[in-house]
Write a protein that binds this DNA or RNA. Structure first.
Lengths: 340, 340
DNA sequence: CTGTTAGCGCTTTCAG
DNA sequence: CTGAAAGCGCTAACAG
């Protein structure tokens, strides 16, 4: 390896006949350094392509200018939106981002959080896995004095700022839209009961039915485990073959809705005429399928930006932050699948 | 901030009445340290939750155990697959990953590469932006003695290992499949002429036509600029409204194919009966739309894994690597849109 | 097998 | 305004 040794402050000092500390101060434009020296040093550094050794700086300052970002699965459109927003914002403030994923497994989340801690990120952005209840691994990070901001899939047991979307309201509005369109027998393919987001979405669904005094057949609610397209297909089949089939299906996420649409098409149901479909998350594909899928928009990019801004502010003010919550409003993107 | 001071080696040494170096060696299980001491130190460390200060270690060893990964857009399914594969592999070898994106802009790529360099990644994985021709910013990294591995969108001017997919063959096979299905008038929505991947895909298309002695109407080839769904829609319209409409359309990427399908559906063309459609990349959505989209699979996840393995091997052997190329075979996923 | 010593590159007192 | 010196936490000669 050719390994040209990088220029150090010492080199600059020697060449310029000044002390290392003066060189350092000049480069960082400290108050109380003559403009002359500053110019001298900076010009020299510029000319010789001086790049400070970040490792040394980090070590010395006990900071890394790095944020950790842990999400369940980067592959999912919502999370890659969050990642994009976070990276963009971090960069703007001079921070780098470590991204990691848990594949929705608690064990991976624990390992990854420890890795983040040991690799000394200054702070952490995290969206919890479905399996996560106990949050000791995150508490450990807080105990070290490092701020954490939770995103979307959060735990109330953790005293950290949170950026979430109003799942309840988003869900309520979505179902209200279905009702406004004239659908009367609305089913719901829900997520894990234990996961707050799923719970809130289901609550929104139930409330909307209640408020509109609509029938709720308990057999209309299924709980997904994998939250996959396959489950959407399967549950749609069960729903439609039941003795009391619904006339609309509200799905915990767009991927599930895709399975539902696939089943309905395979059986030649007319969407939205015979049956309406509504998804959640507004994945890229929602606008591309036929019929296009109506969906509740979670604004992942915005969430990534907001959470990162909060984290960086905590870092700047050197505090851990309370458990204040920023709740973004959802959007409702009405497309063909629910437009009667 | 509560900021509990972390336990250091010095603390351990003091508590155990041994020297710092012994403690260090014991923790790292150096040869020539009594099992007794090793156990003593490790137990103590374990009990008191000793976490080595990675910054100090990195600084001392002049390594960061961090890989940089630069891609055009994380949001795109192919790239998030690459990211997933890379992160998984890196983790397996004890490396972390900085992910960044360029939004296909050269200027961003330059900035991001410098950031990677200054934040001292040990090596870099990169997929070039569409705009990138001149690769000085990457040469700089090589000049510092840090290995670089290029992925998918590569430049031959850069003497680094590359992991690519055989775009030519993938394209050729895809078009051959269309021909085998009986399509005779095959159009191509290509990408930027200057980008190698696009060029190779187009070459595969042209060769397949030639080899099968099929007509090639120059008006059947369009070059996309944004490589967007909208362009797919627009160009499909132009193709179908022309005096010599094709009976199949091969698209540079699935997103473009989505636009094509959308147009065809809007005009009630029967796919695949009247017109076949083939995409490239095999995005997640390809299997979810109706009709489902046939597509050439690029195995992004595998590419991420392979490239990361190569980079880590270079790091281990402390070399920059030559410009050897690993060319993965594409797959062909035949779905409804091309199955007569 | 273990201790002593030096030093990575930088920032930051403390003096002058 | 600048210099000298200390030290962040760890590893790696070098001695014993």
């Amino acid at each position: 390896m050719s390994e040209k040794r990088r220029l150090t402050l010492k080199d600059i000092a020697r060449e310029l006949g000044i002390s290392v500390s003066t060189a350092s101060r000049a480069l960082n434009s400290y108050p109380g350094i003559s403009d002359e020296t500053i110019k001298l040093v900076k010009d020299f550094a510029e000319k010789h392509n001086y790049v400070p050794n970040t490792m040394a700086v980090n070590f010395r300052k006990n900071k890394t200018m790095t944020l950790g970002l842990v999400v369940p699965e980067i592959i999912h459109y919502f999370f890659s939106s969050v990642v994009s927003g976070a990276i963009q914002t971090a960069k703007k403030h001079g921070y780098n981002v470590f991204v990691s994923q848990t594949d929705e497994l608690l064990q991976n989340e624990i390992i990854t959080c420890r890795a983040m801690l040991s690799s000394s990120v200054d702070g952490l952005l995290i969206s919890l896995s479905n399996e996560t209840n106990d949050c000791e691994h995150i508490q450990e990070i807080l105990d070290e004095g490092k701020p954490v901001v939770q995103i979307d899939k959060v735990s109330d047991n953790l005293p950290t700022p949170k950026v979430i979307v109003d799942d309840y309201q988003g869900s309520f509005n979505g179902v209200q839209h279905l009702i406004d369109q004239g659908y009367k027998k609305i089913a719901h393919l829900a997520g894990w009961k234990e996961v707050k987001n799923s719970f809130e979405r289901k609550r929104g669904y139930l409330e909307a039915l209640k408020k509109n005094k609509l029938e709720l057949d308990p057999s209309w609610v299924f709980h997904c485990k994998d939250i996959s397209e396959e489950e959407g297909f399967t549950f749609a089949q069960r729903l439609m073959e039941s003795s009391n089939p619904p006339d609309a299906i509200f799905c915990i996420t767009d991927l599930v809705a895709m399975g539902v649409l696939k089943y309905l098409k395979s059986k030649k149901y007319k969407v939205p005429d015979q049956i309406g479909v509504l998804g959640f998350s507004n994945w890229q594909m929602a606008g591309l399928v036929t019929p296009s899928l109506s969906s509740v928009d979670q604004h992942g990019f915005q969430m990534g930006i907001k959470a990162t801004e909060i984290l960086i502010n905590l870092l700047k003010s050197n505090t851990l932050g309370g458990d204040e919550t920023v709740e973004l409003k959802t959007g409702l993107v009405i497309r063909e699948s629910s437009m009667l």
